[in-house]
Design a protein around this nucleic acid. Structure first.
Lengths: 341, 341
DNA sequence: CTGTTAGCGCATTCAG
DNA sequence: CTGAATGCGCTAACAG
């Protein structure tokens, strides 16, 4: 078994007291360390290949320099968010501990458990757009956990969240389409489950569409469709598309909707980008750019949101922002012009 | 500041000694704990909402019950691998600490640093198929780090790795195509960089194709193409495809190749799955199933590979396998039958 | 600036 | 089974 190099060893080697070593490492202010000593210590550290023991430090300080990131691993959005978190964590010397949501009920529990056991400094969760859970907010609150929800708790400031401007994204899309000179678009709105129950983001989008159209004297045309498998609903999409007068412009809330339109067009021998124009208001499947022709969309900037989440988190942790400040941050979507429009 | 509940508190509440509490929690054998006491302790733990302090424990035991997972966050394969790691880690009470590769040089260094600082129990990296780095292997070795590479170090047992049977995947694909009754396929081989330099997996695939064809008395037909952007090379793909006699079957080493064929077919007004049959030998972009028509492929079972990596890792950590056993594991690909064939 | 000391919470050992 | 003692490596506090 290899012996660990400790700060004691470093101190000995450098011929200084251990407090100095600690002060040098942590840049502790209030302890002046002469340049001379500083250099010697640093050298000793390098010579001995010393690494602080994060456990021991954490035990003393009560902090771990670790954030917990929580989402479902099957979500395509997790990775870009992690990317964003990483961008700032790396810079600030924090690490990311993963936690997977699978069973939403049980998992929040496990998450808190992990938080407590590992003295994690803060929790960031990716929640669905309409997610609001007061119990969870209270749990977090009562334990004083620095916490940020990405996309959860919209219009609800129990919890600070990083939100996307869904209403704005539709305006952006419509302005763009208008500029391209395509016909005024129909809005294709998909929803999950048997009953029509759009989540917060989808409600934002829909009303935004309706407003935009009305203001310009166009009649809003919304088609709401249940999100079934293509086997289930393909025939109806084809039927529906066949009945439309071309050229037509279709704006879908989810990219899944656009994909269905692509499929229907494929069956009918129609050319997307020519016979009909298609645009998505998100990138649910993360495949927009790979479709043929590639799919124009306003996309959610998950990486950016991850960065903002991490930055805000560090403010909480380092104390430059009070936990009681639960204000949210709203980001703008990215307009991705591609071949389908 | 909230006071932490310690094992001391639990012991007090349960009216037993702290050693017993510890024994109950860790199931320490060699310390008989009566059912009675056991129950009382467990109850006290629940009552007080006690959570062990992983830091303190780690300090004592030298282990953290954390694994480091390393890959580039931009890789589409990272998530399924994490998924696999998680499946077994969760079950065994391990957590996953992320480490991102960006700058391959500098990052291995940072990875070791993290390993040392946080007393991580083992490192799992996702490497490229042809990755071999003896220096890194030595570093790992000399520090006695439990380590597994996913897809790295093929044909090299400096390091245990989880590999995919690339040769077998081509046989699987060709057998499948034959059974479908499509014409004997051409093999489209893409490669990165200016010069032709296939990596290990691609060499495996190519010879496997050539063998399979030869054995059956077909002339192997390999087309090697540089992996350029569609803007760069699109015209040539279209030209090439136009010159072929239909129907034709095309097997591509990467799904990117298949996508290029789709694009060319789209421009020529050809129907994939009818005028020509296309199959990919992987799922590089993770979009096979979303293409229209969906793309048949033999895919790398990354989730499974993550699971195997984690399982093997735990054997190293828990001591049921010697570190010196650097044998590798090879998994079979998944054949995904879809619409393009 | 230095040197010393006191814990942080746990697992382990050893004598009862 | 108990109770006490030890040390993991670090930081913060304090007296010099």
């Amino acid at each position: 078994m290899k012996k660990r190099v400790t700060s004691f060893d470093v101190a000995e080697r450098a011929g200084v007291s251990r407090s100095i070593v600690s002060a040098v490492i942590n840049g502790t202010k209030g302890i002046g360390v002469s340049e001379e000593k500083r250099r010697i210590v640093l050298e000793a550290i390098k010579d001995l290949n010393y690494q602080v023991d994060a456990n021991a430090r954490g035990m003393r300080t009560g902090r771990s320099r670790c954030l917990a990131a929580y989402d479902n691993f099957e979500s395509k959005f997790f990775l870009p968010i992690l990317q964003g978190l990483k961008n700032v964590c790396t810079k600030e010397g924090y690490y990311i501990l993963l936690y997977d949501s699978g069973d939403a009920e049980k998992d929040r529990e496990g998450l808190v458990e992990m938080y407590l056991q590992r003295r994690i400094d803060g929790i960031i969760t990716k929640d669905s757009t309409s997610f609001v859970d007061s119990d969870w907010a209270h749990e977090i609150h009562s334990r004083g956990v620095p916490y940020i929800s990405v996309e959860g708790y919209p219009e609800n400031n129990q919890v600070p969240s990083i939100l996307m401007d869904y209403a704005g994204s539709i305006v952006m899309a419509l302005d763009y389409l208008q500029e391209r000179g395509t016909p005024p678009p129909l809005y294709i709105e998909m929803y999950t489950g048997p009953a029509y129950s759009p989540n917060w983001g989808d409600r934002q989008r829909r009303t935004s569409y309706e407003n935009w159209m009305s203001i310009r004297g166009h009649k809003p045309q919304v088609v709401s469709v249940q999100d079934d498998s293509w086997e289930q609903c393909g025939a109806r999409w084809v039927e529906w598309l066949r009945a439309q007068t071309l050229p037509i412009t279709l704006l879908t809330n989810w990219s899944r909707g656009s994909i269905n339109i692509y499929k229907a067009a494929y069956q009918l021998g129609l050319r997307v980008g020519k016979d009909l124009f298609v645009m998505a208001a998100d990138n649910t499947e993360q495949v927009n750019e790979h479709l043929i022709p590639s799919l124009t969309a306003v996309e959610v900037p998950y990486e950016k949101m991850g960065e903002l989440a991490a930055e805000r988190m560090l403010e909480y942790i380092e104390g430059s922002r009070k936990l009681s400040d639960t204000s949210s941050i709203t980001v703008s979507p990215k307009l991705m012009h591609r071949e389908s429009t």
